[in-house]
């Protein structure tokens, strides 16, 4: 059953077509990687799927609902309720501690619950770092806090933009293991990456080139 469907999506900036008639679908519980060189339209697609931008043409169906024409306010609500975002640059609020960074996500979604936030931190192995500020955490630890923050409101879709781009190999493996765990629990994952190793961890890879879907690769060696 499809969770996300992009139908003939184009995003045009003046003369430039960042996305050109792209159509993809992602099933519920599926783990999909989106790959491509710089300028291929990966980030544009991520912004549209993450409800941070709207397509110039085409339709975006999330959970069967066309969100391509929704207002900015409505898109914020959809993002808050259905999507967990993870960024390469982490984007933590620098004056809040690790646990508060997770709780702020709860606050905008429903109600902050410190115990639940601490549990989420425990899940990424950072319960003992709960009271640390982002500046007191390593890059890998910050990214794990961001994974916990993305999970806290039980989103239907985790959307990660180059989640391992700033991490060393050890931390990259920790994050990928977390993704595997989430996938096993039924979470839908879309990971935008230029790293073939990260893409190989997914069930399916969509390769973008010049704003178009160049090919799709099914990972025959996918391991749960």
């Amino acid at each position: 059953m499809s969770l996300l469907e992009l139908k003939d999506i184009s995003k045009i900036y003046g003369e430039l077509k960042a996305l050109d008639n792209v159509s993809i679908h992602v099933d519920k519980g599926e783990w999909v990687a989106i790959m491509g060189p710089s300028g291929s339209g990966k980030s544009t697609m991520m912004n549209i799927i993450g409800c941070m931008d709207k397509p110039s043409k085409g339709q975006v169906f999330l959970d069967g609902v066309d969100i391509s024409k929704e207002s900015s306010r409505k898109l914020t609500e959809i993002r808050r309720d259905k999507i967990g975002l993870i960024f390469q640059q982490f984007h933590m609020v620098n004056y809040l501690t690790a646990v508060e960074n997770i709780m702020v996500s709860q606050y905008y979604h429903s109600l902050p619950d410190e115990e639940e936030a601490l549990e989420a931190l425990g899940r990424v192995g950072l319960r003992d770092r709960a009271k640390h500020l982002p500046s007191q955490l390593s890059g890998g630890e910050q990214q794990r806090v961001c994974v916990a923050r993305a999970l806290i409101n039980h989103p239907e879709l985790i959307l990660a933009d180059e989640p391992t781009g700033n991490l060393d190999e050890a931390n990259e493996n920790i994050v990928l293991d977390l993704f595997r765990q989430l996938h096993r629990e039924g979470t839908t994952l879309i990971v935008v990456t230029h790293d073939p190793e990260v893409a190989e961890a997914a069930q399916r890879t969509i390769v973008l080139e010049h704003g178009r879907v160049a090919r799709e690769i099914i990972n025959e060696n996918f391991q749960e």
Partner: peptide, 15 residues
């Protein structure tokens, strides 16, 4: 950036 992060976390522009 701080406000963009809060927007991503679900804060509306009004908030």
């Amino acid at each position: 950036k701080e406000f963009a992060s809060l927007r991503v976390l679900g804060a509306s522009s009004g908030m």
